[in-house]
Write a protein that binds this DNA or RNA. Structure first.
Lengths: 143, 143
DNA sequence: TACAATTAAATTGTATACAATGTAATTATA
DNA sequence: TATAATTACATTGTATACAATTTAATTGTA
Protein backbone atom coordinates (compact mmCIF):
# COMPACT_ATOMS: atom_id res chain seq x y z
CA UNK A 1 0.00 0.00 0.00
CA UNK A 2 1.55 3.26 -1.17
CA UNK A 3 1.32 6.38 0.97
CA UNK A 4 -1.21 8.09 -1.29
CA UNK A 5 -3.25 5.10 -2.51
CA UNK A 6 -6.28 6.23 -0.54
CA UNK A 7 -6.28 9.39 -2.69
CA UNK A 8 -6.64 7.51 -5.95
CA UNK A 9 -9.91 8.08 -7.74
CA UNK A 10 -10.47 4.34 -8.16
CA UNK A 11 -10.17 3.78 -4.41
CA UNK A 12 -12.96 6.16 -3.46
CA UNK A 13 -16.51 5.10 -2.59
CA UNK A 14 -18.05 8.50 -3.21
CA UNK A 15 -16.78 8.83 -6.75
CA UNK A 16 -18.56 5.78 -8.23
CA UNK A 17 -21.70 6.91 -6.40
CA UNK A 18 -21.42 10.33 -7.95
CA UNK A 19 -20.60 9.00 -11.42
CA UNK A 20 -23.22 6.24 -11.28
CA UNK A 21 -25.92 8.65 -10.22
CA UNK A 22 -25.14 11.04 -13.05
CA UNK A 23 -24.83 8.35 -15.70
CA UNK A 24 -28.14 6.72 -14.80
CA UNK A 25 -29.87 10.09 -14.72
CA UNK A 26 -28.65 10.60 -18.29
CA UNK A 27 -30.49 7.39 -19.22
CA UNK A 28 -33.74 8.98 -18.08
CA UNK A 29 -33.24 11.91 -20.41
CA UNK A 30 -34.74 10.56 -23.66
CA UNK A 31 -37.86 9.42 -21.78
CA UNK A 32 -38.22 12.60 -19.74
CA UNK A 33 -37.45 14.88 -22.70
CA UNK A 34 -40.50 13.52 -24.49
CA UNK A 35 -42.61 14.73 -21.57
CA UNK A 36 -40.67 17.99 -21.13
CA UNK A 37 -39.62 16.94 -17.62
CA UNK A 38 -36.25 17.10 -15.88
CA UNK A 39 -35.10 14.42 -13.45
CA UNK A 40 -35.63 16.76 -10.50
CA UNK A 41 -39.15 17.57 -11.66
CA UNK A 42 -39.80 13.85 -12.13
CA UNK A 43 -38.76 12.81 -8.61
CA UNK A 44 -40.73 15.75 -7.23
CA UNK A 45 -43.82 14.45 -9.01
CA UNK A 46 -43.10 10.98 -7.57
CA UNK A 47 -43.60 12.37 -4.08
CA UNK A 48 -46.74 14.22 -5.17
CA UNK A 49 -48.26 11.13 -6.80
CA UNK A 50 -47.91 9.49 -3.44
CA UNK A 51 -48.75 12.31 -1.02
CA UNK A 52 -51.12 14.46 -3.11
CA UNK A 53 -50.51 17.41 -0.77
CA UNK A 54 -47.34 18.38 1.09
CA UNK A 55 -45.44 21.48 2.15
CA UNK A 56 -42.01 22.44 0.84
CA UNK A 57 -40.14 21.50 4.00
CA UNK A 58 -41.59 17.98 4.08
CA UNK A 59 -41.07 17.56 0.36
CA UNK A 60 -37.47 18.59 0.84
CA UNK A 61 -36.97 15.89 3.47
CA UNK A 62 -38.10 13.19 1.07
CA UNK A 63 -35.98 14.53 -1.78
CA UNK A 64 -32.92 15.68 0.19
CA UNK A 65 -33.35 19.12 -1.34
CA UNK A 66 -33.82 22.57 0.21
CA UNK A 67 -36.10 25.46 -0.73
CA UNK A 68 -33.28 27.05 -2.72
CA UNK A 69 -33.50 24.17 -5.16
CA UNK A 70 -37.18 23.39 -4.82
CA UNK A 71 -38.67 26.87 -5.24
CA UNK A 72 -37.76 27.18 -8.94
CA UNK A 73 -38.60 23.52 -9.62
CA UNK A 74 -42.05 23.94 -8.07
CA UNK A 75 -42.69 27.15 -9.98
CA UNK A 76 -41.91 25.29 -13.20
CA UNK A 77 -44.25 22.42 -12.31
CA UNK A 78 -46.95 24.96 -11.48
CA UNK A 79 -46.48 26.66 -14.87
CA UNK A 80 -46.92 23.28 -16.53
CA UNK A 81 -50.13 22.76 -14.61
CA UNK A 82 -49.07 19.65 -12.70
CA UNK A 83 -49.21 21.20 -9.22
CA UNK A 84 -50.69 24.13 -7.33
CA UNK A 85 -48.83 26.32 -4.83
CA UNK A 86 -50.94 27.78 -2.03
CA UNK A 87 -50.15 29.28 1.35
CA UNK A 88 -51.54 27.43 4.35
CA UNK A 89 -54.34 29.55 5.83
CA UNK A 90 -53.54 28.28 9.34
CA UNK A 91 -49.85 29.15 9.02
CA UNK A 92 -48.97 31.47 6.19
CA UNK A 93 -45.30 30.50 6.37
CA UNK A 94 -46.14 27.12 4.88
CA UNK A 95 -46.56 26.69 1.17
CA UNK A 96 -48.80 23.75 0.38
CA UNK A 97 -48.03 21.93 -2.83
CA UNK A 98 -50.97 19.96 -4.18
CA UNK A 99 -51.19 17.81 -7.26
CA UNK A 100 -53.67 18.75 -10.00
CA UNK A 101 -55.78 16.52 -12.20
CA UNK A 102 -53.22 17.03 -14.98
CA UNK A 103 -50.49 16.03 -12.54
CA UNK A 104 -52.28 12.82 -11.68
CA UNK A 105 -52.78 12.05 -15.37
CA UNK A 106 -49.06 12.53 -15.99
CA UNK A 107 -48.43 9.33 -14.04
CA UNK A 108 -49.88 7.26 -16.86
CA UNK A 109 -47.39 8.75 -19.28
CA UNK A 110 -44.32 7.85 -17.19
CA UNK A 111 -45.33 4.43 -15.93
CA UNK A 112 -43.00 2.52 -18.28
CA UNK A 113 -39.90 4.55 -17.39
CA UNK A 114 -38.77 2.51 -14.35
CA UNK A 115 -38.80 -0.72 -16.37
CA UNK A 116 -36.90 0.89 -19.20
CA UNK A 117 -34.25 2.18 -16.81
CA UNK A 118 -33.96 -1.23 -15.15
CA UNK A 119 -33.03 -2.66 -18.52
CA UNK A 120 -30.10 -0.22 -18.74
CA UNK A 121 -28.74 -1.39 -15.41
CA UNK A 122 -26.82 -4.58 -15.85
CA UNK A 123 -27.55 -6.19 -12.48
CA UNK A 124 -29.27 -9.39 -11.43
CA UNK A 125 -32.38 -8.86 -9.35
CA UNK A 126 -30.55 -10.01 -6.19
CA UNK A 127 -27.67 -7.63 -6.86
CA UNK A 128 -30.05 -4.73 -7.38
CA UNK A 129 -31.70 -5.51 -4.06
CA UNK A 130 -28.31 -5.72 -2.37
CA UNK A 131 -27.25 -2.39 -3.86
CA UNK A 132 -30.53 -0.82 -2.82
CA UNK A 133 -30.10 -1.99 0.77
CA UNK A 134 -26.51 -0.82 1.00
CA UNK A 135 -27.41 2.61 -0.38
CA UNK A 136 -30.17 3.11 2.17
CA UNK A 137 -27.89 1.86 4.91
CA UNK A 138 -25.38 4.56 3.98
CA UNK A 139 -28.04 7.22 3.48
CA UNK A 140 -29.73 6.57 6.81
CA UNK A 141 -26.52 6.02 8.72
CA UNK A 142 -24.45 9.06 7.69
CA UNK A 143 -22.65 10.59 10.65
CA UNK B 1 -48.32 -4.95 -6.05
CA UNK B 2 -50.25 -1.81 -6.88
CA UNK B 3 -50.30 -0.52 -10.45
CA UNK B 4 -48.04 2.45 -9.71
CA UNK B 5 -45.73 0.98 -7.07
CA UNK B 6 -42.78 1.09 -9.44
CA UNK B 7 -43.22 4.88 -9.52
CA UNK B 8 -42.75 5.30 -5.81
CA UNK B 9 -39.64 7.15 -4.78
CA UNK B 10 -38.68 4.45 -2.30
CA UNK B 11 -38.77 1.79 -5.01
CA UNK B 12 -36.23 3.48 -7.27
CA UNK B 13 -32.57 2.51 -7.49
CA UNK B 14 -31.44 5.79 -9.02
CA UNK B 15 -32.86 7.97 -6.29
CA UNK B 16 -30.80 6.57 -3.38
CA UNK B 17 -27.75 6.76 -5.64
CA UNK B 18 -28.47 10.40 -6.34
CA UNK B 19 -29.24 11.25 -2.72
CA UNK B 20 -26.33 9.24 -1.32
CA UNK B 21 -23.88 10.85 -3.68
CA UNK B 22 -25.04 14.35 -2.74
CA UNK B 23 -25.12 13.68 0.99
CA UNK B 24 -21.62 12.21 1.06
CA UNK B 25 -20.28 15.09 -1.02
CA UNK B 26 -21.68 17.43 1.66
CA UNK B 27 -19.54 15.60 4.20
CA UNK B 28 -16.44 16.58 2.24
CA UNK B 29 -17.37 20.24 2.44
CA UNK B 30 -15.83 21.22 5.81
CA UNK B 31 -12.54 19.57 4.85
CA UNK B 32 -12.48 20.98 1.33
CA UNK B 33 -13.60 24.45 2.45
CA UNK B 34 -10.47 24.75 4.58
CA UNK B 35 -8.42 24.27 1.42
CA UNK B 36 -10.72 26.42 -0.76
CA UNK B 37 -11.48 23.42 -2.96
CA UNK B 38 -14.78 22.15 -4.36
CA UNK B 39 -15.53 18.45 -4.75
CA UNK B 40 -15.16 18.69 -8.52
CA UNK B 41 -11.81 20.41 -8.16
CA UNK B 42 -10.77 17.75 -5.64
CA UNK B 43 -11.54 14.76 -7.87
CA UNK B 44 -9.87 16.56 -10.77
CA UNK B 45 -6.74 16.88 -8.65
CA UNK B 46 -7.00 13.17 -7.81
CA UNK B 47 -6.52 12.33 -11.47
CA UNK B 48 -3.68 14.82 -11.75
CA UNK B 49 -1.87 13.45 -8.69
CA UNK B 50 -1.92 10.11 -10.45
CA UNK B 51 -1.30 11.08 -14.09
CA UNK B 52 0.74 14.31 -13.73
CA UNK B 53 -0.10 15.25 -17.34
CA UNK B 54 -3.28 14.59 -19.29
CA UNK B 55 -5.48 16.26 -21.89
CA UNK B 56 -9.05 17.41 -21.27
CA UNK B 57 -10.65 14.60 -23.23
CA UNK B 58 -8.84 11.88 -21.28
CA UNK B 59 -9.45 13.65 -18.00
CA UNK B 60 -13.13 13.79 -18.86
CA UNK B 61 -13.21 10.04 -19.44
CA UNK B 62 -11.89 9.38 -15.95
CA UNK B 63 -14.25 11.87 -14.32
CA UNK B 64 -17.35 11.30 -16.49
CA UNK B 65 -17.36 15.03 -17.27
CA UNK B 66 -17.23 16.95 -20.55
CA UNK B 67 -15.34 20.09 -21.54
CA UNK B 68 -18.37 22.22 -20.72
CA UNK B 69 -17.91 21.33 -17.09
CA UNK B 70 -14.16 20.91 -17.05
CA UNK B 71 -13.10 24.13 -18.78
CA UNK B 72 -14.16 26.43 -15.91
CA UNK B 73 -12.94 23.97 -13.26
CA UNK B 74 -9.52 23.77 -14.90
CA UNK B 75 -9.30 27.56 -15.22
CA UNK B 76 -9.98 27.84 -11.49
CA UNK B 77 -7.32 25.27 -10.64
CA UNK B 78 -4.90 27.13 -12.90
CA UNK B 79 -5.68 30.42 -11.10
CA UNK B 80 -4.92 28.72 -7.81
CA UNK B 81 -1.59 27.56 -9.17
CA UNK B 82 -2.24 23.82 -8.89
CA UNK B 83 -2.14 23.06 -12.61
CA UNK B 84 -0.93 24.49 -15.92
CA UNK B 85 -2.91 24.58 -19.16
CA UNK B 86 -0.86 24.39 -22.35
CA UNK B 87 -1.69 23.53 -25.93
CA UNK B 88 -0.01 20.46 -27.35
CA UNK B 89 2.58 21.63 -29.90
CA UNK B 90 2.05 18.49 -32.01
CA UNK B 91 -1.72 18.95 -32.10
CA UNK B 92 -2.94 22.37 -31.11
CA UNK B 93 -6.47 21.09 -30.52
CA UNK B 94 -5.30 19.30 -27.40
CA UNK B 95 -4.99 21.16 -24.13
CA UNK B 96 -2.47 19.50 -21.88
CA UNK B 97 -3.15 19.80 -18.19
CA UNK B 98 -0.08 19.33 -16.04
CA UNK B 99 0.27 19.43 -12.30
CA UNK B 100 2.52 22.06 -10.72
CA UNK B 101 4.80 21.79 -7.69
CA UNK B 102 2.09 23.52 -5.64
CA UNK B 103 -0.43 20.98 -6.95
CA UNK B 104 1.76 18.10 -5.85
CA UNK B 105 2.19 19.67 -2.42
CA UNK B 106 -1.59 19.98 -2.06
CA UNK B 107 -1.79 16.21 -1.77
CA UNK B 108 -0.21 16.34 1.67
CA UNK B 109 -2.94 18.66 2.87
CA UNK B 110 -5.79 16.37 1.79
CA UNK B 111 -4.36 13.00 2.72
CA UNK B 112 -6.55 12.55 5.81
CA UNK B 113 -9.81 13.31 4.02
CA UNK B 114 -10.60 9.78 2.77
CA UNK B 115 -10.27 8.35 6.28
CA UNK B 116 -12.46 11.07 7.74
CA UNK B 117 -15.13 10.44 5.13
CA UNK B 118 -14.97 6.68 5.76
CA UNK B 119 -15.87 7.37 9.37
CA UNK B 120 -19.06 9.13 8.25
CA UNK B 121 -20.15 6.11 6.26
CA UNK B 122 -21.70 3.55 8.53
CA UNK B 123 -20.67 0.40 6.68
CA UNK B 124 -18.56 -2.59 7.63
CA UNK B 125 -15.46 -3.02 5.50
CA UNK B 126 -17.04 -5.99 3.69
CA UNK B 127 -20.20 -4.00 2.95
CA UNK B 128 -18.18 -1.10 1.61
CA UNK B 129 -16.32 -3.47 -0.70
CA UNK B 130 -19.61 -5.00 -1.82
CA UNK B 131 -21.10 -1.57 -2.52
CA UNK B 132 -17.98 -0.54 -4.38
CA UNK B 133 -18.14 -3.61 -6.61
CA UNK B 134 -21.82 -3.20 -7.36
CA UNK B 135 -21.36 0.46 -8.25
CA UNK B 136 -18.58 -0.30 -10.71
CA UNK B 137 -20.61 -3.15 -12.15
CA UNK B 138 -23.44 -0.71 -12.85
CA UNK B 139 -21.11 2.01 -14.09
CA UNK B 140 -19.24 -0.24 -16.49
CA UNK B 141 -22.32 -2.16 -17.59
CA UNK B 142 -24.74 0.64 -18.44
CA UNK B 143 -26.59 -0.06 -21.68
C1' DT C 1 -48.50 42.06 25.69
C1' DA C 2 -43.98 43.70 23.71
C1' DC C 3 -40.15 41.64 21.83
C1' DA C 4 -36.78 38.05 21.12
C1' DA C 5 -36.27 33.65 18.98
C1' DT C 6 -37.66 30.46 15.74
C1' DT C 7 -39.50 28.81 11.51
C1' DA C 8 -40.66 28.32 6.37
C1' DA C 9 -39.88 29.98 1.93
C1' DA C 10 -37.74 32.90 -1.14
C1' DT C 11 -33.70 35.16 -2.78
C1' DT C 12 -28.78 35.75 -3.89
C1' DG C 13 -24.38 34.22 -5.27
C1' DT C 14 -21.29 30.62 -6.69
C1' DA C 15 -20.31 26.32 -8.82
C1' DT C 16 -21.46 22.60 -11.24
C1' DA C 17 -23.58 19.62 -15.15
C1' DC C 18 -24.74 18.97 -19.68
C1' DA C 19 -26.85 19.53 -24.42
C1' DA C 20 -26.10 22.17 -28.32
C1' DT C 21 -23.37 25.06 -30.90
C1' DG C 22 -19.13 27.43 -32.39
C1' DT C 23 -14.26 27.55 -33.65
C1' DA C 24 -9.89 26.17 -34.93
C1' DA C 25 -6.85 22.39 -35.99
C1' DT C 26 -6.19 18.04 -38.07
C1' DT C 27 -7.30 14.12 -40.95
C1' DA C 28 -9.51 11.73 -44.68
C1' DT C 29 -10.71 11.52 -49.32
C1' DA C 30 -12.46 12.69 -53.84
C1' DT D 1 -4.29 19.15 -53.16
C1' DA D 2 -8.77 21.33 -52.25
C1' DT D 3 -12.40 20.40 -49.35
C1' DA D 4 -15.30 17.58 -46.54
C1' DA D 5 -15.40 15.26 -42.23
C1' DT D 6 -13.73 14.77 -37.80
C1' DT D 7 -11.79 16.10 -33.50
C1' DA D 8 -10.77 18.86 -29.19
C1' DC D 9 -11.93 22.39 -26.60
C1' DA D 10 -14.60 26.59 -25.56
C1' DT D 11 -18.92 28.93 -25.27
C1' DT D 12 -23.87 29.48 -24.52
C1' DG D 13 -28.14 28.54 -22.39
C1' DT D 14 -30.84 26.05 -19.05
C1' DA D 15 -31.41 23.69 -14.82
C1' DT D 16 -29.92 22.23 -10.74
C1' DA D 17 -27.58 22.31 -5.92
C1' DC D 18 -26.52 24.51 -1.88
C1' DA D 19 -24.69 27.94 1.60
C1' DA D 20 -25.89 32.23 3.32
C1' DT D 21 -29.03 35.80 3.78
C1' DT D 22 -33.58 37.96 3.76
C1' DT D 23 -38.45 38.30 4.69
C1' DA D 24 -42.63 37.40 6.76
C1' DA D 25 -45.22 34.73 10.00
C1' DT D 26 -45.53 32.42 14.26
C1' DT D 27 -44.12 31.08 18.85
C1' DG D 28 -41.92 31.61 23.27
C1' DT D 29 -41.03 34.35 27.14
C1' DA D 30 -39.81 38.17 30.19
Amino acid sequence: MEEYDNLKLENQLCFPLYACSKEIIKKYKPYLDKLDLTYTQYITMMVLWDKKKINVKELGKYLFLDSGTLTPVLKKLEQKGYIERNRNKEDERNLIISITKLGIELRNKVKDIPNNISKCVNLEQTEAVQLYKLLYKVLNGLK
